[in-house]
């Protein structure tokens, strides 16, 4: 956070951590696609802190900043009848408040 107004929050997840996406369906402008909600993935990289677009969409400041991650999912985890190769993946940009640690 700039100007020391708020102490920057350390990110909850690191590259390689397994995470699951919240399986929730709040109304409004959401940036996490339905097809990955409730699914298990791996943090591919930590992208940095960004203003929260789900707040910006309504004219708010977008603060506090949210950590953004790229989460890698196996295609087979996302779709029951995926017809491609086993190793195929989708990487999705997901903000921290949509993620929880997977055991």
């Amino acid at each position: 956070m700039l100007f020391g107004v708020e102490v920057a929050m350390k990110q909850r997840f690191q590259k390689g951590d397994m995470v699951s996406v919240l399986n929730t369906h709040p109304p409004g402008h959401r940036r996490t696609p339905y097809y990955c909600r409730g699914k298990l993935g791996e943090i591919e990289r930590v992208c940095g802190e960004y203003k929260n677009p789900e707040e910006l969409a309504y004219g708010f400041s977008g603060e506090p900043f949210k950590w953004l991650y790229r989460v890698r999912f196996n295609q087979a985890e996302l779709w029951d009848h995926y017809s491609g190769s086993k190793g195929d993946t989708i990487d999705i940009d997901i903000y921290e408040h949509w993620l929880e640690a997977a055991t």
């Binding site: 696609p33 677009p53 190769s85 190793g87 195929d88 993946t89 989708i90 990487d91 940009d93």
Partner: peptide, 15 residues
Amino acid sequence: DDEVTVRVHDSLADL
């Protein structure tokens, strides 16, 4: 080819 991994990237945030 089947041996090649296909990686889809869903770009929907700040990247």
